[in-house]
């Protein structure tokens, strides 16, 4: 008798999330573990968004900064470059310039950037604040309003500021990133709080907080795995949103993506190493369940897309 591989099936399903207006992208929607097409339905490919900023990326390491050297002084040009030249399927605009320790740009400054970028590209936009609790609750409601009708993702709502940000996302019909700090129980708690205020749980994207390979990736990996198992095996409705891996910002601030061959010759080519580092971090998180990934280097994205091709 021929061998038949045992199949595991689950009662839960991850919510599919569709974003964008003229060009739309959908991620999530699977009823099985990541890429387990042999056990269930995996209707959508994970979505990789290229990250841009409202201000020039002065703190990005040279390896990734030079890719955007000609466009990164202007978020519109930068966004167009990602869409037209690099064929990005989505763009993540981080309003880092609004952070009080950065340029402390105002909510109105942010609104202008968001409107300009929305007017210049057709691919879906993810709008991220600066992760400053107070400033985000000032900036994100305004940009959410400015982006009404574009079906964006707004983020990130945290326990300390979720009310204002979620209310704005709800009123302006956007999706919402709910971030908690590497704690599965707090992640569930935040999703409960959001649903209790009337936010549709099918419009949430869970961010369990990312970390780079070598810097606690295993914690993120494990929390993501457990969230996904709660969604599928326990059919836990509040744990069924798709998950985000905000990879780029964590990878491009570590030693491995910055130390040159002159300092660490035994580590080999900096460029190759840094790109691989981002690709490895991203693909690992996809394996633990992330369906939405934010990345910086286009060659790292290419590698990950190739990896997904083989698994899909």
């Amino acid at each position: 008798m021929a061998f038949e591989a045992p199949k595991e099936s689950f009662s839960g399903v991850v919510y599919p999330v569709t974003i964008g207006k003229d060009v739309q992208e959908t991620f999530g929607g699977e009823n099985t573990l990541p890429f387990h097409k042999f056990e269930g339905e995996v209707p959508n490919r994970p979505l990789i968004a290229l990250e841009i900023q409202d201000v020039a990326p002065e703190d990005w390491p040279e390896t990734v900064r030079r890719v955007y050297a000609d466009v990164s002084d202007d978020p519109v040009k930068w966004a167009q470059y990602c869409q037209d030249e690099l064929k990005a399927r989505a763009i993540a605009l981080r309003l880092i310039g609004t952070h009080p320790d950065n340029k402390d740009l105002s909510a109105d400054d942010a609104v202008k950037v968001v409107k300009d970028v929305l007017g210049a590209v057709k691919v879906p936009l993810i709008i991220l604040g600066s992760n400053h609790v107070e400033k985000d609750s000032e900036v994100l409601p305004k940009v959410a309003e400015a982006a009404k009708g574009y079906n964006c993702i707004i983020g990130k709502a945290q326990e300390a500021n979720y009310k204002t940000i979620a209310a704005a996302a709800m009123a302006n019909e956007h999706k919402l990133i709910a971030m908690s700090e590497l704690d599965i129980n707090l992640s569930k708690q935040l999703n409960i709080l959001l649903t209790q205020m009337g936010f549709d749980k099918e419009k949430i994207i869970t961010d369990p907080m990312c970390s780079a390979l070598g810097y606690g990736l295993e914690y993120t990996y494990s929390v993501m795995e457990r969230i996904r198992l709660a969604a599928l095996a326990q059919n836990d409705e509040v744990m069924q949103p798709p998950m985000l891996g905000d990879v780029g910002m964590y990878v491009w601030k570590i030693k491995e993506t910055q130390a040159g061959e002159d300092i660490l010759p035994e580590w080999g080519s900096l460029e190759e190493r840094a790109i691989l580092w981002e690709a490895m971090t991203a693909s690992s998180l996809m394996l633990s369940g992330a369906e939405l990934i934010i990345m910086r280097h286009p060659r790292a994205v290419e590698l990950v897309e190739k990896f997904v091709d083989e698994l899909m």
Binding site: N185, K188, Q189, I192, Q196, R226, A230, Q234, D236, M239
Partner: peptide, 12 residues
Amino acid sequence: GKTLYAHSYLEM
């Protein structure tokens, strides 16, 4: 361990 603990688990 059949459902994940959250502070508001009773309210779900």
